[in-house]
Every structure is written in C-alpha cells, then in structure tokens.
Design a protein around this nucleic acid. Structure first.
Lengths: 139, 139
DNA sequence: CCAGTTGTCTTGACTCGTTCAAGAAAACAG
DNA sequence: CTGTTTTCTTGAACGAGTCAAGACAACTGG
C-alpha cells in the first residue's frame, strides 16, 4: 500500500485537490480491489471517521474521470472499482459467488481490439469479461 | 419476422406456456434488437393493447432463463434484450449515442475463451464489449 | 501569511429501473 | 369440461445512484 504522500502525489498530478476523503477513497480502492461502493464507504469511514455517502460517490466519479481508478460493473452486480489502470487487463467473474479476479490479456498488449466486422464503428477499447466458477465454488 | 406459429413453437419447445404477452414480447425482442425494457413494453402494447410492465419483466426473465433471449447490460445503460442466441457474437457500443451493434466473433467459433492465466477459474463464457463511436457520431 | 475564489463535502430529498406480494385470470392435462 | 398450476394484474416497495443548496476547506495571488 502506498504511503499517504504517494496518494497525494497521484491526486495532484491529476489536477485534483487533496482532501482527506479523496486520499482515503483512493487508498481504499487500492487496498480493496473490486470492492463495491458500500464496501469502500465502510473502509473510508474506518479510516477517517464519518464521511457522507455522497462524497464517496463524487470522489469515485472524479477519480474515474481522471483515470486514477476504473469502474467496472458486471451484469447483476453493483458498480465496483479498481486501481489497476493503464495496463490492459480483464476480469473473471464467478457465477456462483460473484468474486472478481484479474486476468492479463490473452494475446499481447492491445488484444482483441479488432472486431471481424466493425460495422463502421471506430473502436477504441475492447472489454472482456470471462464467466465461470472460481476455485472455491467448484463442485 | 417469424409468424406467430413459429413464436408459439419456440415457446412450447422451451416448456413455456403460450400466452399473448409472451408471444408479443418474443416478437418485440426479435423486431427490436437491443431494445430496453421500456421500448419493448411500448412495442408489446402497440401489438396487443394494455399489458402490465410487470408481465414484461416476468416474461423477459422467463425467456432469458429458457435461453430464448439474451440479456445484455452495458455500463451506464439499462438492461437490453436480443433474440440472437446460440451463436457466439459480441457487441459494439457507441460512447456517444449508446447505440449497440452486433459483431461476429473476431477469431473463430469459440474465441477469446482462453485467458492467459485463469487463476484456477473454470471459464465457460467470454463476453466482449467493444467501445467506440458509431458512424453517425463520428466527428 | 492572509483573504478571496473555486471546488468539495454535508444534508436530505428524490428519481428510476427493477423486484416483491397477493389475488384474479388464463392455459394446459385428463 | 373441470381442476390444477402457472401467469398476469395491481399496487406498493426497494436500493443504487443522482440532484440541489448551502456550509466548508483547499489552492492562489497579493
């Protein structure tokens, strides 16, 4: 886990003001990968005390917009956040318990980015979600 | 568009009772690919008159469970349904207007189904969403 | 170091897609 | 045709996320 100064540095370099809620949210996202908003709220409150609900939503939106965190929302799940950005990786979701794990890209750096027929779309990102069962949910 | 009898046949072969709302919903999904629940509700009402939105939700769940339609929910969008099932195809979503188009699989029949590191998961499906701009939203 | 400005946090209400529950109605089996 | 079972209707409820207004704190320029 990066020390507070690193987190502040990240915020500053993204032209975001450094506030206790922001540092705490950023820290929580890094220590709880793939956590949902509510879990992050709990973590932030455990860290710096009472924080509004709203602040966390707002901070997450700001961080997402700045590219410091990434928002993922698999079907049937609420929004989740992760701090691993910049590298092109994907996710496996367990159909049974809903746990999410990272998977590195199957074929090189900028993978599956070419659809067989793009229908005239200009594609800038390919997002892959693998569905299956995690080791602990296997029969 | 299949005639009513075909739709009934599909329902029967899926062990589902044949009712007017079901036939109308199934028909609407086929004629309005990637439509959201509300649009389907409109279409169904235009077809057979007043129907409760609850019935549409229930029918869509039944059809999804039976594998007759597929539910897709891209980030930031409400649930959408399509009747193209069984073949392995993916979607392109326009970042600007949200329109969705089908894309055939990039590399063969069962594509991207092998992650580089599966972390012990048993993967049974890979879902790919391409993000970009559609022809009409291009600058 | 201080005040001003701008952006952020708090509070509280609210929206919207979706689901739950109970009873009426309709489809299928015999 | 009758009975059983599933499905539809009605109406209410839920929860994640959003909107709005004002209090407040972080950066900037003097």
């Amino acid at each position: 886990m990066p020390i507070a100064t690193d987190l502040e540095q990240s915020l500053r370099s993204a032209a975001l003001r450094v506030t206790r809620p922001r540092v705490a949210v950023l820290s929580a996202v890094q220590t709880h990968p793939h956590a949902d908003t509510d879990a992050l709220l709990q973590a932030v409150r455990a860290d710096i005390g009472e924080v509004s609900h709203q602040a966390v939503y707002d901070v997450l939106r700001a961080l997402t917009g700045a590219g410091l965190v990434r928002k993922i929302e698999p079907q049937g799940s609420v929004a989740r956040y992760e701090s691993r950005v910049g590298d092109n990786h994907h996710h496996v979701v367990c159909r049974s318990c809903g746990v999410i794990a990272d998977v590195d890209c199957a074929t090189g750096d900028t993978p599956c980015l070419t659809a067989s027929n793009d229908r005239g779309f200009v594609i800038d990102e390919a997002e892959v979600v693998y569905w299956g069962l995690c080791p602990t949910c296997l029969p």
